[in-house]
């Protein structure tokens, strides 16, 4: 529903050489399809939450049979949803940031803007990798001790699938940051060549 300025496929795999930034473009190796698919899963999950809570509300009031475990499932789900969709949210340029300085640079010093964006994306990559490596051990532990929400004899759900989804989400987001940085650098190099040709 948003009028995206450049959809995947609108430009080559490296992105338009003179696009203002790397967002909303096709990614190398067609990886935007992977991120898009994960995003779609997250989307269905949101719809599932709506159905689940309504089932609980109507079941409780009309049939006196609440759905047990909705509270636990909702609080786990939100984490799963966020990390399934994190990479696509990044790819489509939806991470919030201030654009005052960047907009000016894009107009006046496009190569500096490219370089700065590359740096920011690399920082994002590093941060994701740090969280990623620290998230591995909790996942293993969660499987080992069969961590669950709920209670024995009542509703019980395992926690590890959410930890796994989180890990996958962090990994794909790290990948996305890396690809964005690479596209920034390529764009900067292309601008440099053009400047060289003109001179």
């Amino acid at each position: 529903m948003t009028a995206s300025r450049n959809e995947p496929g609108a430009s080559g795999p490296t992105g338009g050489a003179f696009a203002p930034d790397a967002y909303n473009q096709a990614l190398p190796f067609g990886l935007h399809h992977l991120f898009g698919a994960m995003n779609a899963l997250g989307t269905l999950w949101i719809l599932g939450l709506m159905v689940l809570i309504n089932l609980d509300v109507f079941g409780r009031n009309l049939l006196s049979t609440p759905v047990r475990g909705v509270t636990e499932m909702v609080s786990l789900s939100i984490v799963g949803i966020v990390f399934l969709q994190l990479a696509d949210t990044l790819r489509t340029g939806r991470f919030t940031r201030a654009d005052v300085l960047m907009d000016r640079l894009k107009r006046q010093q496009p190569r500096v803007a490219d370089a700065l964006q590359a740096v920011f994306h690399l920082v994002g990559l590093v941060l994701m990798l740090i969280i990623l490596q620290a998230s591995w051990e909790p996942l293993v532990e969660s499987i080992r001790i069969r961590e669950y929400v709920g209670a024995v004899g009542d509703f019980q759900a395992p926690v590890w699938p959410i930890r796994l989804v989180t890990l996958l989400g962090l990994a794909t987001t790290a990948l996305c940051f890396g690809l964005l940085a690479w596209m920034d650098l390529k764009r900067m190099a292309a601008r440099g060549r053009l400047a060289g040709d003109a001179a």
């Binding site: 949101i46 949803i81 696509d88």
Partner: peptide, 11 residues
């Protein structure tokens, strides 16, 4: 609409 909802929620 659902996709957009996801992006807003995530960011």
């Amino acid at each position: 609409v659902l996709t957009e909802t996801g992006h807003v929620t995530v960011s």
